[in-house]
Computed example of a mutant assay.
Amino acid sequence: MRKLGPGIARTAAVLAGGLAMVVVAASPAMADTSQSTASALQINLVGGGLASSGSASATNDGTTESISGNTNPPLSVLGGQTVITAGVLGQAVRAFNDGTSAACAGVLGSAGAITIGAGGVCTATQGSEVSLNLGTNGLATISLVADAVYASCTATSSPSATGSASLVNARIVSTLLGVSTTLLSLPANPAPNTGLSVAGLLNLTLNGQSSPTAGQLNVTALSLSALGGTLAEVTIGSATCGPNAVAPPIPVIPLAGAPIALGLSALAASTGGVLLHRRRRARNRS
């Protein structure tokens, strides 16, 4: 009797093993998602109304970054308010493919800029001095004056998040008959949730931080609340990073095709077994 060729059995075994490896390779491919949001300035106007710079947002599904909103809004978005009449609004955002994200937002003097570089590092290029007119106290004008005021944050999918606030040469100033007096000098790198006040006028929170969920951080460089009704309320530099996370698994073989792949693997293995059995029987008869 003619013997079965060893190549047939060997081919069947290789086919079974190969299909099994394809099914193993169908184990999920993982991708990290990331997100961030930034808003430069919000003003609650005296007498009611809100002036806002809006916000910019970045998201990443693990392969593609999408950015929406205006990262460098003009002052005209604030409408006819008179709190800030010169300067730069910055609200930079990034969401990277590796599950990290960054945001940076605030106000700077004219010709200044806020950017996010490699590794999510926020950089503020200072311009001239910026002044926010907060209102009047008697005959004196109360202002916030600074070279730059901004917040920054970063987050990872581990999950973790960090943030900080930078107030460059920032101070509360009273101006009467052309003479300016510093009422309060603000720290350049305040600790989280630092509270300060100007007696009878203002309450301030510097580097306000909150974490609504694990791996998410909200940072506000400066929020200022008036004690009376003649001063504006201002929020400068709000940045939010995260939560970033490992995305749902994406199978190499679509789930609908997995049973077919498994069936083919089982069929190949079964065929290989039958051929090997026939080969042994043929040997024994010869």
Rank of each mutant, 00 (worst) to 15 (best):
G17D: 10
G18C: 14
G18P: 06
G18I: 11
A20Y: 06
M21S: 10
V22L: 15
V22C: 11
V23G: 06
V23M: 03
A25T: 00
A25F: 14
A26Q: 08
A26P: 07
S27R: 08
S27V: 05
P28T: 03
A29H: 12
A29S: 15
A29W: 12
A29E: 13
A29C: 01
M30A: 13
M30N: 12
A31W: 08
D32A: 14
T33H: 13
S34R: 08
S34Y: 10
Q35G: 05
S36M: 05
T37E: 13
A38W: 11
A38P: 11
A38G: 09
S39K: 03
S39L: 02
L41I: 12
L41V: 10
Q42L: 14
Q42K: 14
Q42P: 00
Q42D: 15
I43W: 04
N44K: 15
N44I: 06
L45D: 08
L45N: 13
L45A: 12
V46Q: 06
G47S: 05
G48P: 06
G48K: 04
G49A: 02
L50R: 09
A51G: 01
A51W: 02
A51P: 02
S52F: 07
S52V: 07
S53G: 14
G54S: 06
G54N: 06
G54P: 04
G54T: 04
A56L: 10
A56H: 08
A56C: 11
S57L: 04
S57A: 13
T59W: 03
T59D: 08
D61V: 11
D61P: 10
D61S: 12
D61I: 13
D61R: 10
D61Q: 11
T63D: 10
T63Y: 09
T63S: 14
T64C: 08
E65N: 06
E65H: 04
E65I: 01
S66A: 14
S66V: 15
S66D: 09
I67H: 07
I67M: 06
S68L: 02
G69S: 10
G69Y: 11
N70D: 15
N70G: 05
T71A: 14
T71M: 12
N72W: 00
N72E: 12
N72K: 12
N72A: 15
P73S: 07
P73M: 06
P74M: 05
P74Y: 03
L75D: 03
L75W: 05
S76C: 02
V77H: 00
V77W: 00
V77T: 07
G80Y: 02
Q81F: 09
Q81P: 01
I84H: 04
I84E: 00
I84L: 08
T85M: 03
G87L: 03
G87Y: 02
